[in-house]
Write a protein that binds this DNA or RNA. Structure first.
Length: 512
RNA sequence: GCCCCCAUCGUCUAGAGGCCUAGGACAUAGCCCUCUCAAGGCUAAGACAGGGGUUCGAAUCCCCUUGGGGGUACCA
């Protein structure tokens, strides 16, 4: 049985790249049957932000990426927070100290820095080996007990650190080129490279699937597994994801820069105020949270992420989760970096929305209408009926739940918001008002007020008056909805009903 | 500086020496459909980074160059 893990550090908000890595772990686990473990790498207490954890967990839950062991649910290898495992790291470090695989290093940061500068000036690699590297183990133990300091792992020399990577293939690094890494800080807290190894051993991780930037860490970690007498897990280093329109790695620092004026406008359009946006620093298009708030279907996000760096074959783009699980394998993970492309994600969102059953579509749209203050909480039965009719008539126009505001807005507001340009172009156009006015009696007299009947009514009228359908359709649409775009006109009128249609035509005519 | 990794249309990708005149998808453009906008249909434009090998034959294998990325922390 395989055991995989994803180990986010709550130092900032989780971005798309991290989620993609987690997804690959999750898929591999579900493909082969195993456990997916969530472990929190919070050893860096200076940069750690406890409030960043919850959004990460929420994001996973929203996407449906459940974890078998980890925060909130525990498991046989608890605790799953590195900050609560310090004793374990201390014990392991002391073990290495006693076996002669670690040694204390009393050099100060300043001395280290000077060494590094000197090495760089001389154009040779900087490889630190502490003075106590060759001190006998028993003496090292004594020194460390007397005066605790940083503990370094003793990289074995004259060897090659070999990683048979499931994605990168055969990767090699000469150990002579690897400096002895610090495993415990002066204050006893462990460093990533060490804590990660200990946890992977303790949690019996069989497959370490992580971002490519950890490949060089792996060369350091391989000898640690050996020194610990532990079996080496399999590794797979997935390529990084780059920022949109850039070949720089997506980083969790400076994510605010993705909150462009255009993105901000989109958020405004669905009812977010600037204050609300500012209070949420995870609200930008490289986080999962953003897509949830915009009303993307999580299945589309998962599909998109899964296809980013992995492919099923030469043509399949739409790959629902069960199909992805059944076919996922690291051998088809691409070897080179991928760029995040919001356009393709948007297209996939539409594809998934097409397939969503109507009751779920209705439920998904409600929060957006509510946020915009267009429906009651909970919605009245009449509102639900109307929403159903609007969504039915909207067809494939709704790709995101938030699109309900665009297509449903005119139906859930008391009065239309008249778009100035539309009014000028369609309603104030020469003759338009007269055409519209002339059609009113027909609407008043119509026997039936449903879409097919209205269509016939309008076409008959146009034929009679020798008009093109558009001559009446356009002004009529603007009069009753205020805008030029929307769902089919006859559905629009039918949903509004005769009385409301006539009232709005009257409003529109007053503008002209 | 040193080390490691990567390199096919704008983007995601297919491609395991002949199925390649390099396939698909997103985006783009045009046309059709049409009451607008979507959706749908059709079409167009668009790539093997460069140079050397190996081979009868290279996008595919090797080397070099170039370009890009990552690491080089008492960050993860």
């Amino acid at each position: 049985m395989i055991r995989t893990r994803f180990a986010p550090s709550p130092t900032g908000y989780l971005h798309i790249g991290g989620v993609r890595t987690a997804l690959f772990n999750w898929l591999l686990t579900h493909r082969h049957g195993g456990k997916f473990i969530l472990r929190i790498d919070d050893t860096d207490t200076e940069r750690n932000r406890p409030e960043a954890l919850q959004p990460i967990l929420d994001g996973f839950r929203w996407l449906g990426l459940n974890w078998d062991e980890g925060p909130e649910i525990g498991g046989p290898c608890a605790p799953y927070f590195q900050s609560q495992r310090s004793e374990r790291y201390t014990v392991a470090a002391m073990q290495l100290l006693e076996t002669g695989d670690a040694y204390p290093d009393y050099m100060t940061k300043e001395e280290l820095e000077a060494d590094r500068k000197a090495a760089e000036a001389a154009k040779r690699p900087y490889i630190h080996r502490g003075p106590h590297r060759h001190t006998p183990a028993s003496e090292c133990v004594r020194l460390y007990r007397e005066k605790p300091t940083t503990l370094r792992f003793k990289i074995p020399l004259g060897q090659e650190s070999i990683v048979e990577d499931l994605i990168c293939g055969h990767c090699v690094q000469k150990t002579d080129l690897i400096g002895d890494p610090v495993i415990l800080r002066v204050d006893g807290r462990p460093l990533y490279n060490f804590a990660s190894v200990i946890d992977d051993v303790d949690m019996k991780i069989t497959h370490v699937i992580r971002a490519r930037e950890h490949l060089s860490n792996t060369y350091v970690q391989v000898p640690m597994f050996a020194a610990l007498g532990a079996e080496l897990p399999k590794f797979g280093h997935v390529p990084v994801i780059n920022e949109p329109n850039s070949n720089k790695k997506l980083s969790k620092r400076d994510m605010k820069k993705f909150l462009t004026p255009e993105i901000r406008a989109k958020l405004h359009a669905i009812g977010w105020t600037d204050e609300q946006i500012e209070s949420r620093d995870d609200l930008n298009p490289v986080t999962v949270a953003f897509y949830r708030e915009m009303g993307y279907l999580p299945a589309a996000v998962v599909n998109y992420l899964g296809r980013l760096g992995w492919s099923l074959d030469d043509k399949t783009e739409f790959i629902p989760l069960d199909q992805m699980i059944a076919n996922f394998g690291l051998e088809r993970v691409n070897d080179s970096p991928a760029r995040f492309d919001p356009d393709k994600l948007y297209w996939l969102a539409g594809e998934y929305m097409k397939l969503l059953p109507m009751p779920e579509k209705v439920q998904g749209c409600i929060p957006f209408l509510r946020r915009a203050g267009m429906i009651a909480d909970p919605p009245s039965p009449a509102e639900l009926v109307k929403l159903g009719r609007v969504l039915e008539a909207s067809g494939d126009r709704i790709k995101l739940f938030s699109d309900v505001l665009i297509y449903g807005g005119p139906f859930f507001r008391n009065d239309p918001i008249y778009d100035e340009k539309a009014v000028t172009k369609k309603l104030k156009k020469a003759g338009a008002a007269d055409v519209l006015r002339g059609f009113v009696p027909r609407l008043q007299a119509a026997e039936q007020f449903d879409a097919p009947a209205l269509e016939k009514l309008l076409h008959d009228y146009c034929a009679e008056k020798n008009l093109k359908a558009g001559d009446l359709v356009h002004p009529l649409r603007v009069a009753v909805t205020g805008v030029e775009v929307g769902i089919g006109l006859f559905d629009t009128l039918a949903i509004l009903g005769r009385e409301e249609t006539l009232r709005r035509i009257d409003m529109g005519l007053k503008l002209g």
